[in-house]
Nucleic acid binder design. Structure first.
Lengths: 321, 321
DNA sequence: TGCCCAGTTTGACTTTTGTCGAGAGCCGTG
DNA sequence: CACGGCTCTCGACAAAAGTCAAACTGGGCA
């Protein structure tokens, strides 16, 4: 298969069409191929990230509400997806926005940490292709053997594929049965290296999980519903990168957390840009916990959630004064 | 004039069309306007940089020749515009390529130094619009009062306009009649501040001028043809940001240079990324001088010039060994 | 108030682009 | 060497996007 010349042709066609502004038939005659082929090449060029079409996400930060939230929660940037209008599906809208924001935040040479969850996978799924060079996508937490399509390694790989980047997977279970085994595994050079490399990331992408029976941790069998309920009564407020955090965003002191293989929260906080995306309104408390714990610098949420966050912040400062 | 809502609409239309992949008629019915308006909004969105369409310039660096040149001249990156094919106009091709490369090198928050010349203006002219935030474009050298459209301030302003960036102009003449006056003007706070700010740039864009009667310096009246010939016999090899350099890329010790108001070469060398673009084959010696003087880290040239550079480099190392 | 201007918006028309099935070239294989 | 299976390519048609003159809007001004 002549893959090289094809790639070359795609590139040339894309260059003539997009950079020089020629019409498809002009490109076709330049390259001595049919116009139909040109159309096909251009589609491939878009699909492989040889050409990049991106729209500014300014609109969603320009919102007054977004500005207020940035101030109130001292975040670096907030994007708010509208929900009021006759938008077909607000959670898709959030994912599409998050994907654009993510691509805007990525720079060449970056090292990107990616966690796991339905939200992250949805973002990967709608993310457009790009041709970043020297980008590495690293997996932030161990795997779950569940048959879900949004396993940690899949999220990492899919995003790496879209960006044409190197994916650094990490094949350890997310949760082990004993604390001892987890300790031993964490001490393994392969694992330790990966985990300590997390702090060197330039950008992180994750969502936050709820502490209830619907949580992935329960669905994937890492915890039983009753264990989850127990954790909740012990102060669990949310899940970040597979770890349970309390309302202050600190790792909850519990057996489960000690059995988890994942990036430490301190490492996450060492990452300059931490993009948190939340789709479900029900994740209000978990998100508050993540923000309290300084695990979020950039936030993408729906309008409704944004309003709740702002109301909460206002109420808190009022009480304090 | 309702400029805000219009901008908002353009943004929304662009978002629905490019990010969500809706068709124009679907966008039109979502926004309750006619499809024709949508088409118009989308054009505006492209023109103002709300949407960005960029094609990877990989193809032009992937060339073996480009790699060899990078090694031979120890440059960070080289792009070579093909000239062999039935390309309409090689110099336009170089300008289009340079504009793409330039946009690829710019990052948010950058401070960009721009010099002046026909080449730089041509690049500005074909550059697509972008919506970079926090970018500042600064003028690297004083002005010439000539009626050319590619005056230093025009080059700066045009590029700033295209990027939606802040343009920092600098209203001093490029050349003064006495050395004394030049010294005095350079000591002026406004000027001194600007000149010392050059070293803080992250990216510079310039071409290199030839030392002959066709030079802009002659055409704009800064030097007479005979003065130019004199300088040439004194060792002048090229012109960078309005200053005459010798074959080693050092400022030539001459009255003219002492009368010029421009960024010092040392400041230029302090800029991390220095993009030099050369269109004319006749500028071989000036370009060699600029490279020798370390004034170039990123280079865009035509295929013919690239070959000459490589041949020259090979001959030089051969002689040396 | 009424008029005019500059900038929008629209419907109708033209041009450009996307797509699909048919056909052509190109292997490895039986 | 003929045979599927494969991808790539093309022509023709359908769909989508671009364009333009005419109608419309709303604000400034006599």
């Amino acid at each position: 298969m002549a893959i090289r010349p094809a790639e070359q042709l795609i590139h040339k066609a894309a260059w003539l069409y997009y950079a020089h502004g020629l019409r498809q038939d002009q490109v076709a005659s330049q390259l001595n191929i049919s116009r139909a082929s040109v159309a096909m090449y251009l589609r491939k060029a878009r699909e492989t990230g040889i050409v990049n079409i991106s729209t500014s996400t300014q609109l969603f930060t320009d919102d007054v509400l977004a500005r207020k939230l940035e101030d109130a929660l001292s975040l670096d940037a907030v994007w708010i997806a509208p929900e009021n209008d006759h938008i077909a599906d607000p959670s898709t809208e959030i994912a599409v926005l998050a994907a654009s924001v993510f691509l805007e935040l990525v720079k060449k040479g970056d090292r990107i940490g990616v966690a796991w969850g339905r939200t992250v996978y949805m973002i990967a799924d709608v993310m457009s292709y790009a041709d970043l060079q020297d980008v590495t996508v690293v997996q932030l937490c161990g795997n779950l053997g569940a048959p879900y399509s949004y396993r940690p390694d899949q999220c990492t790989m899919e995003i790496a594929r879209r960006l044409n980047a190197k994916g650094l997977n990490f094949y350890a279970p997310l949760v082990l049965s004993t604390e001892e085994l987890a300790r031993a595994l964490r001490a393994e050079p392969v694992i330790r290296e990966q985990l300590s490399g997390v702090g060197e990331c330039d950008l992180a992408l994750y969502s936050v999980g709820a502490v209830d029976a619907d949580s992935h941790l329960v669905k994937c069998g890492a915890l039983t519903p009753s264990e989850m309920a127990d954790l909740r009564s012990q102060g669990a407020a949310g899940v970040i990168a597979g770890q349970i955090i309390d309302a202050e965003g600190k790792v909850l002191d519990c057996s489960y957390n000690r059995r988890v293989i994942s990036a430490e929260l301190a490492s996450l906080r060492a990452i300059a840009r931490r993009l948190v995306v939340v789709q479900e309104d029900s994740k209000f408390e978990p998100l508050l916990a993540a923000i309290a714990g300084g695990l979020c610098t950039h936030l993408v949420v729906g309008a409704h959630m944004a309003q709740r966050l702002l109301d909460h912040a206002a109420a808190t400062t009022e009480k304090a004064s």
